[in-house]
Computed example of a mutant assay.
Amino acid sequence: MMIRRAGRDEVPAVLALLDGATEWLVARGQTEQWGTAPHSTSPRRVAQITGFADDGLWVGETDGRLVGALAVGAAMEYVPPATEPELYIRLLVTERASAGQNVGGVLLDHARELARDAGVSVMRVDCFAGGDGALVRYYESQGFTRDVAFAVPRVNEPDWLGQVLVQRL
């Protein structure tokens, strides 16, 4: 897999990865994480991914096909601030057709390289902590440890349950 810096022209392809992940979750009855609507139809989400492209968006390609995306930058506003310099993973998404090929692991290795190059020894990420906890367990399998749990209040819906995870390099 080749990893390269992405720009605004890749935003539609990254949104398509997110749409595919949402479709996969919905097909399994797991709508708590991202709901049921495509990310590509949400002006807020389009603006967010465009901002990621301006700040630090990376994509993984295999045979010319986008198979994953990684965004790094400032911590999300809904998580407690870091107590030391860090690299924050704002987005990690992979193509469902590439499941089992360690696309996410390779992108996380790239994040580790970015952190080392920036001279920081801590990476943090947050993820959905609801459902069966599989996403939290995935990050733990990648060497992260649980830090703080949090909840994001939503209007007319249950709170969105999240978990911050940390990895020391």
Results as ranks from 00 to 15, higher is better:
residue 15 L to H: 02
residue 15 L to C: 09
residue 16 A to T: 05
residue 16 A to L: 04
residue 16 A to I: 07
residue 17 L to R: 08
residue 17 L to H: 10
residue 17 L to V: 13
residue 17 L to T: 13
residue 18 L to P: 06
residue 18 L to K: 11
residue 20 G to K: 02
residue 22 T to R: 13
residue 23 E to G: 09
residue 23 E to V: 14
residue 25 L to Y: 03
residue 29 G to I: 08
residue 30 Q to M: 11
residue 31 T to C: 04
residue 32 E to P: 10
residue 33 Q to E: 10
residue 33 Q to A: 13
residue 33 Q to R: 13
residue 34 W to Q: 15
residue 35 G to F: 01
residue 36 T to F: 01
residue 37 A to W: 00
residue 37 A to I: 09
residue 38 P to G: 04
residue 39 H to M: 14
residue 39 H to D: 12
residue 40 S to I: 01
residue 40 S to A: 12
residue 40 S to M: 03
residue 42 S to G: 10
residue 42 S to N: 14
residue 45 R to C: 13
residue 46 V to E: 05
residue 47 A to Q: 12
residue 48 Q to W: 05
residue 48 Q to E: 14
residue 48 Q to P: 03
residue 48 Q to Y: 02
residue 48 Q to C: 04
residue 49 I to R: 11
residue 49 I to K: 11
residue 50 T to G: 15
residue 50 T to M: 06
residue 50 T to H: 02
residue 50 T to F: 00
residue 51 G to S: 06
residue 51 G to R: 07
residue 52 F to P: 10
residue 53 A to I: 01
residue 53 A to H: 02
residue 53 A to G: 10
residue 55 D to K: 06
residue 58 W to G: 06
residue 60 G to S: 10
residue 61 E to L: 11
residue 61 E to V: 12
residue 61 E to Y: 01
residue 62 T to H: 05
residue 62 T to E: 14
residue 63 D to A: 15
residue 65 R to C: 13
residue 67 V to W: 00
residue 67 V to E: 14
residue 68 G to C: 08
residue 69 A to N: 01
residue 69 A to L: 02
residue 70 L to Q: 06
residue 70 L to K: 02
residue 71 A to Y: 03
residue 72 V to M: 01
residue 72 V to K: 01
residue 74 A to N: 11
residue 74 A to V: 09
residue 75 A to G: 14
residue 78 Y to M: 07
residue 80 P to Q: 08
residue 80 P to C: 06
residue 83 T to W: 07
residue 83 T to L: 12
residue 83 T to N: 08
residue 83 T to V: 15
residue 85 P to S: 05
residue 86 E to D: 13
residue 87 L to E: 03
residue 87 L to C: 15
residue 87 L to T: 10
residue 87 L to N: 06
residue 87 L to W: 01
residue 88 Y to S: 15
residue 89 I to L: 14
residue 92 L to A: 13
residue 93 V to L: 05
residue 93 V to D: 08
residue 94 T to V: 14
residue 95 E to R: 15
residue 95 E to P: 03
residue 97 A to H: 09
residue 98 S to I: 00
residue 98 S to N: 07
residue 98 S to M: 08
residue 98 S to H: 08
residue 98 S to G: 11
residue 99 A to P: 06
residue 101 Q to M: 13
residue 101 Q to C: 12
residue 102 N to C: 07
residue 105 G to D: 08
residue 106 V to N: 10
residue 108 L to D: 08
residue 108 L to C: 09
residue 109 D to R: 11
residue 111 A to P: 05
residue 112 R to L: 09
residue 112 R to Y: 01
residue 114 L to M: 07
residue 114 L to C: 02
residue 115 A to N: 04
residue 115 A to W: 00
residue 116 R to M: 00
residue 116 R to H: 01
residue 116 R to S: 01
residue 117 D to M: 01
residue 117 D to H: 01
residue 118 A to M: 05
residue 118 A to G: 10
residue 121 S to M: 05
residue 121 S to R: 11
residue 123 M to L: 15
residue 123 M to V: 13
residue 123 M to I: 15
residue 124 R to V: 10
residue 126 D to T: 13
residue 126 D to Y: 02
residue 128 F to L: 12
residue 128 F to Q: 13
residue 130 G to N: 06
residue 132 D to F: 05
residue 135 L to K: 02
residue 135 L to I: 12
residue 136 V to H: 05
residue 137 R to M: 04
residue 138 Y to G: 15
residue 139 Y to V: 11
residue 140 E to N: 07
residue 142 Q to A: 15
residue 142 Q to F: 01
residue 143 G to Y: 02
residue 149 A to K: 04
residue 149 A to P: 07
residue 149 A to R: 11
residue 150 F to R: 15
residue 151 A to P: 08
residue 151 A to D: 13
residue 153 P to F: 07
